[in-house]
């Protein structure tokens, strides 16, 4: 498998009134095509910055971001983004919201074709009856479903999600996790998920990357070698519980504290 995303030695600092604020420090991440990568790390360590670098919305001070064999030098239409805030446009219907990226990426596509594509995605996420509703008429979980449809409607190579389920209640969140597996089975995107929910990362991802506290380095990498779609019961298997414990310890370390379990520090899969 080739790597769709290649992050090589990325270092970045924000200029602030008190001098430069280093945010990313020599970050290295590879995401194989078609796989799902979750990134976890302490709050404010630079995860959102990472998504903006991959999307080409900004550029690193040092290091390189490669997308499908090409250096990222500008935003590109092969990227889809979803945020914690679903940012749906209130003056458009749900259907029109989902069609928005096609208006940018494929302006010459016939309207009927755009609509078909949007409607089939809405049906896939269980919103077929809500196509003509306004965003404010939907629940938070439904809005996030629509937001995901919009993020993949133009068949992007990579779907970048920045804590998309962070504002949802626990049950809605689990519904959306399962939806995520379903979408992956139907749509060919490679995924990068920023999250602060370790169970979410283990349930969804093929690899979980733990970032250290700011400035973020790749502190730890965990492979989850299970095929998808996974049943929700997967998170209660002993194997998954073990993975969760490992990640939990790594988060403690990332926050500069002692691991929860003693002796769990040296793990076999330390970051390269």
């Amino acid at each position: 498998m080739t790597n769709l995303i290649e992050i090589k030695g990325v270092t970045h600092a924000y200029p602030t009134a008190d001098g430069p604020l280093p945010v990313l420090d020599d970050l290295n991440i590879s995401i194989p095509e078609g796989s799902f990568c979750a990134v976890v790390g302490p709050s404010g360590c630079g995860k959102s910055t990472l998504t903006r670098l991959i999307a080409g919305l900004m550029f690193p001070d040092k290091g390189e971001v490669w997308l499908h064999g090409e250096r990222v030098r500008s935003p590109r239409s092969t990227v889809g983004m979803a945020f914690q805030n679903p940012v749906l446009l209130e003056w458009r219907t749900i259907l029109q919201n989902v069609m928005l990226p096609l208006e940018i990426v494929a302006p010459r596509m016939p309207r009927a074709q755009k609509e078909d594509r949007a409607r089939s995605l809405l049906a896939l996420v269980g919103l077929e009856g809500f196509a003509d509703k306004r965003p404010s008429e939907l629940s938070g979980g439904m809005r996030q479903r629509a937001s995901l449809c919009r993020a993949i409607v133009h068949k992007p190579e990579i779907l970048i999600m920045d804590e998309p389920f962070g504002a949802l209640d626990a049950f809605t969140r689990e519904d959306l996790w399962q939806l995520m597996h379903k979408l992956r089975a139907e749509e060919p995107f490679t995924a990068l998920l920023i999250t602060h929910d370790l169970r979410e990362s283990v349930y969804l991802a093929d690899q979980v990357i733990v970032l250290s506290g700011r400035p973020a380095r790749t502190q730890y990498r965990l492979d989850i070698p299970l095929p998808g779609p996974r049943p929700l019961s997967m998170i209660y298997t002993p194997q998954a519980v073990e993975w969760l414990a490992i990640l939990r310890d790594q988060i403690e370390i990332a926050q500069g504290r002692a691991p929860v379990r003693s002796g769990a520090v040296q793990s076999q899969e330390a970051a390269q």
Binding site: R52, A55, G56, L57, S74, P75, R76, S77, V79, G80, M81, F83, N85, V87, L89, L100, P101, I104, V105, R150, H154, I160
Partner: peptide, 14 residues
């Protein structure tokens, strides 16, 4: 205007 609103289109090269 929240940056996310801008980013959903800017990330597509609009």
């Amino acid at each position: 205007l929240e940056p996310e609103y801008r980013d959903i289109l800017r990330s597509l090269g609009a």
